[in-house]
Design a protein around this nucleic acid. Sequence first.
DNA 1: TTATTTAATGTTATATTATAACAATTAACA
DNA 2: TGTTAATTGTTATAATATAACATTAAATAA
Lengths: 131, 131
Amino acid sequence: MQKETLSKNQKIILDYIEKVNEPIKAYSILHNVQKKGIKAPLQVYRALDKLVEIGKIHKIESKNAFVACKNSNCQISKATAFSICESCEEVSEISDHKLSKYLKTFQEKTGMKFNKYNLEFFGLCKKCSIK
Amino acid sequence: MQKETLSKNQKIILDYIEKVNEPIKAYSILHNVQKKGIKAPLQVYRALDKLVEIGKIHKIESKNAFVACKNSNCQISKATAFSICESCEEVSEISDHKLSKYLKTFQEKTGMKFNKYNLEFFGLCKKCSIK
DNA sequence: TTATTTAATGTTATATTATAACAATTAACA
DNA sequence: TGTTAATTGTTATAATATAACATTAAATAA
Ligand SMILES: [Zn+2]
Ligand SMILES: [Zn+2]
Ligand SMILES: [Zn+2]
Ligand SMILES: [Zn+2]
């Protein structure tokens, strides 16, 4: 799905999330797009649902926050994998071959068929661990 | 930390979560332990916080639910890894050597020092995928 | 033991996150 | 064009979680 095919509200909200460039909460989004005519939580949540569904954004479950997908070619729209620095709050999307491979072997071993996963790694980023 | 050293409320709530044996939500816990004298959400949340901290239970972030740790020797009290069946809701705690190894190499590669992670795999369990 | 500190509790109010329900409008398309 | 599906607008409310403050119990050190 291309950005051009998004609806009005979806576009407004994706634009804002991309601009912010870090995980942001639904009500914070709401406050910041009110000047664009979005008045109610539901308008935000509906757009968020759709944007998550098509892989344009991801939800950081442990933070109830949303972040734009950095992976222009994020195939697995239902998968998220992030590393999160507990000091500076920097969030990076993980796209790692070994992880994909591990997931595959795990799938084979457990007999479980995965269609979605949510991975969140917390720690200190390089910068912050030097300090 | 042993179960014996837990406080009254912590014990009540851990006992209940262990009995239920599947992810359960805070307010559902509250309703079910009211006969034991626990009246307010905070009493539940405080016990949950502590139990998570000492590794007796884990939080399934994407479900806002809590589940007892099945890993009697769960060293990494701050780590959770679960597979969750989207059909029967069965949840299994993952304790996998390859995953630990992957996390280590990932740590080395990114320069990030992890002290906590939250992994949630969603799909269909063996049983449900046959149906 | 007794003073001192730390952890846990009880309670009320409130903040934060998310959805239900229903009416109206717009876009997709046979 | 008529029909269906998707999106929007709006109000109310559900569900999840924490703030603030007073009190009590437990741990521990003088
Ligand atoms: Zn992505
Ligand atoms: Zn950092
Ligand atoms: Zn565990
Ligand atoms: Zn199943």
